[in-house]
Design a protein around this nucleic acid. Structure first.
Lengths: 239, 239
DNA sequence: CCAAAAGTGTTATGCTTACACCCATGC
DNA sequence: GCATGGGTGTAAGCATAACACTTTTGG
């Protein structure tokens, strides 16, 4: 290994060998208006001017990757508290026409509570930041469509094998609301009784004691328990 | 984004902002002598002189990440044909004491056939490249112990949920040999009858027609079918 | 004939699935 | 009282898990 950092007189950062740029991009999902939403930012400059892109940016030299992802999110929005996990690293040499850019994509789930607060702020700023339905995406910059499709795959997988769907909902929610999340993400109808049995069997939800008053029979509200997130269960296949 | 490549007069590669180095590392697993093995290379220079490290190196500027991983493997060994998948990207700022290095780790499974051929070559070259038991590792450089533990976790997960254990064995193998792979990787005994039923139910193996003659009753040899690898099954949790 | 590994079935249990009706409320 | 979504149980089928003996070969 013989790369070395040298700062030359003209204010550049110089190395013996060329280095790619490294960014993080965040796929931030939430759920509202009965739809799965993803946060995108409209580009104002070429390349891909006017196209929409995932929030993201360069990794600082002294910064962990997931911290960079959170920082980028905090810079574009007022979001502080999300479920975050590394998704995949995308590095095709031609994915950015300007220079080699390798991006470490992170997958994030935002509660509808926070999403609602964000929506107001971004609108008042008149920034070109908004939620898009995963099922009606605009033109996307770079390879972000591929990244998004992969993130959707991961989200589906996650909902099938864990009970983490509630991370997309407000702090309190009804089981029907949760079922709608699952149906919309998995893109298929689920049996109500089986869904409830399965979700409750996962033992990560508890009744909050409140009910959601609506036009009709009130529904019990649930919240997730503290241990819910660790319980992303280690299933065993062999006894 | 305002990074730009500039080659200055002194032969350096210069950018407006500092860039991390990007490497790929490969965790190459195989199975022989009834043990799960991983390929490591002894370092001859500081830092971590004499410690052992994963094969890997810098990503070229015009090279896809997985191609870089395969190239590194080909440079250190004569291996050409492996099952390869991206494992995780490790980027702690202090993981290399010299400069910021972000590594995209790849996970690879090598058939025992190829591992045997490799063993001979690396010994004749007297290179400090060798297989180590996953359960008796030497001192490791950088954060490679963490990477290896994570790779082992992924391998276990893979064997529990798919039938890909045969990728660690020769082209033809007995069911008992395959069971030993599973037992050794998962680190626990398995029931012979249930194991056979489960593996055969996965429908990725076929009898080769040959038998392994040994001291005792000969065992039928199996090989995996062409479709076996794609069949890394998409299980559905909700009907 | 003995040692060693290969090979083979059955039963009990628990989980998954499919399926239809009553309940509580607002208007 | 009616429209709307909330809420509940059961039976059949399937997969899993536990368990022990016979077969085939070489020496």
């Amino acid at each position: 290994m013989n790369q070395e950092v040298v700062r030359d007189g003209a204010g550049y950062f110089c190395y013996d060998y060329p280095r790619p740029a490294v960014t993080t991009d965040v796929i931030l999902f939430t759920f509202h208006d009965n739809d799965l939403k993803v946060l995108l930012i409209q580009r104002k400059h070429p390349p891909f001017e006017h196209s929409w892109a995932l929030p993201g940016g360069f990794v600082n030299m002294d910064e962990e990757l997931h911290i960079a992802a959170l920082r980028e999110l905090a810079e574009e929005t007022n979001i502080t508290d999300v479920y975050l996990e590394q998704l995949y690293t995308f590095g095709r040499p031609d994915r950015d026409p300007r220079t080699r850019v390798i991006t470490v994509a992170y997958f994030a789930l935002l509660s509808a509570d926070q999403a609602a607060r964000l929506e107001i702020r971004s609108q008042s700023d008149a920034k070109d930041v908004r939620w898009w339905s995963m099922y009606a995406l605009p033109d996307l910059a770079f390879d972000h469509d591929r990244i998004l499709q992969y993130a959707l795959q991961r989200l589906r997988w996650k909902l099938e094998w864990t009970a983490l769907g509630f991370l997309l909902l407000p702090a309190e929610f009804t089981l029907s609301e949760l079922q709608r999340v699952y149906e919309r993400v998995l893109n298929e109808p689920l049996d109500k009784r089986n869904f409830r049995r399965k979700i409750l069997a996962a033992d990560v939800l508890e009744e909050s004691g409140n009910v959601r008053g609506g036009d009709h029979r009130p529904a019990k509200l649930y919240r997730f328990t503290a241990k819910a997130i660790e319980l992303e269960q280690a299933r065993r296949r062999f006894p």
